[in-house]
Computed example of a mutant assay.
Amino acid sequence: MKIIDFRFRPSTPEAVRGMLAKGGVFSPMFELFKFADRAKPEPLEKIVADLERCGVVKGVVTGRDAETTYGLASSNPGILELMAAYPDLFIGFAGLDPHKGMDALATLADMVEKRGMRGAAIDPYLARIPASHAKYYPIYAKCCELEVPIVITTGPGTLVRGAVMDDAHPRHIDRVAADFPALKIIISHGGYPFVSDAIMVVHRNRNVYMDLAEYEEQPFSEGYIKAANTLIGDKILFASAAPFMDFQEQIALYRRLPFEPAVRENIMYNNAAGLLGL
């Protein structure tokens, strides 16, 4: 079975060291979940070989830029390096900071038109403003102009200082979907813990998709499985959330979860392929 991983970052030694650096915005979360004990830093060549062995034909690498609020500089340069090294495997989505205004639009245009990226990525939780905030609307309009989708991260990272869960609530995405019906939106991390709300946002808006990265087995996650088999099986995307999660273990998990066979095939490849125009 061919697989498209819609949220993948390789666990290279450099990436793992960066994630485990003391004082980072996610450091308390990584310590709580003992990420250092389960991290598996490996050379990029080994990671790529494992992806190919597992049937992963594309990996979407979503960027992040939360420099204004948390001092997290853009990860776009590193994504460009991955794309250059393995252009047939990695697809980049440009991370954008909405507080940077017109500079964010210039970044998006450059990354898509000149550097070959295929979409945009924002994180309202880290930006500390909801997805329906006016600062995002020029970004959405630019995505429509460029005809590229946008990933909206909704996972409320644990123990992130100053961030509030409401900024990541999927109800804000419902308004964006109504205001920009031509914009293809991917809710990343399933809108957790607002499971029912996220499901309905995906169900009632033709232009909204969802991945379940990291939350497939959390409390109330059975709602995702039921919705996949009955309502939105053509709009859920496989996303491993590597390197925080082991992508090989995540693939094995999706083979075990009680998806209908046709739904599983859609989730693992077909839905993403259609969204990306492959």
Rank of each mutant, 00 (worst) to 15 (best):
R171T: 07
A239N: 10
T12H: 02
P193R: 08
F238A: 05
F26A: 05
R9D: 09
M210F: 05
V160F: 10
R161M: 11
A213P: 04
A272M: 04
G190K: 14
K46T: 00
T62C: 10
A121C: 10
G223D: 11
I47F: 07
F35L: 03
L276Q: 08
G233A: 14
A141Q: 15
K58V: 10
A198E: 12
A141G: 07
P258D: 11
R9K: 13
P13N: 01
V60T: 12
V160H: 09
A272D: 06
L183V: 06
D110N: 15
R204K: 12
P77E: 10
E31P: 07
K2Q: 06
S132D: 15
M165K: 15
P87Q: 05
G119A: 03
H169I: 00
G24H: 00
C54I: 05
V176F: 00
K114H: 11
G92W: 10
M29A: 15
D5Y: 07
R206N: 02
T62W: 00
E67N: 08
H133Q: 12
A228D: 01
G155S: 08
Y136P: 09
P261Y: 02
V263G: 06
M111Q: 15
R7P: 05
E214Q: 08
G223N: 13
M102V: 10
C144L: 04
G101F: 09
E222H: 12
S75P: 11
F259R: 01
R118P: 01
I232K: 12
